[in-house]
């Protein structure tokens, strides 16, 4: 499994340096590292939204942008990515650290 990320570059905080190296398999692998065993369709809805907006703007979306953009509630977002979705979502989506505050 770790062969998947053998050629992927990460920064010191664990974010992928080049978002283009990302794949769905890598996301599944990174999710496991973050303690999420299985990525459900709701997880993917969030990850796909982050990929789309993140690649377009060059910035990982903030949590509020995710809830507004996907229609997934704050409660569900925090349940899907327990113990702090802000960094987890960005890491799994292969994006950098979110820069916004809200």
């Amino acid at each position: 499994m770790s062969d998947l990320v053998k050629d992927v570059a990460f920064n010191a905080e664990g974010y992928m340096i080049d978002a283009k190296q990302w794949s769905r398999e890598i996301a599944e692998f990174l999710a496991k590292l973050e303690g999420i065993e299985v990525l459900t369709p709701d997880h993917w809805k969030i990850i796909d939204f982050c990929r789309t907006t993140g690649l377009a703007s060059g910035k990982a979306p903030t949590l509020r942008q995710i809830t507004v953009g996907t229609g997934i509630s704050t409660k569900d977002l925090f349940a899907l990515f327990p113990k702090g979705p802000a960094k987890k979502v960005a890491k799994i989506a292969g994006l950098g650290k979110p820069e916004g505050c809200v």
């Binding site: 903030t62 509020r64 509630s73 704050t74 409660k75 809200v102």
Partner: peptide, 18 residues
């Protein structure tokens, strides 16, 4: 303008987040 919600909505978000 900076994307921050009004006080009531912000607090509700915090409650929803635990």
């Amino acid at each position: 303008k900076v994307g921050a919600p009004p006080v009531d909505e912000y607090l509700q978000m915090m409650v929803d987040a635990g």
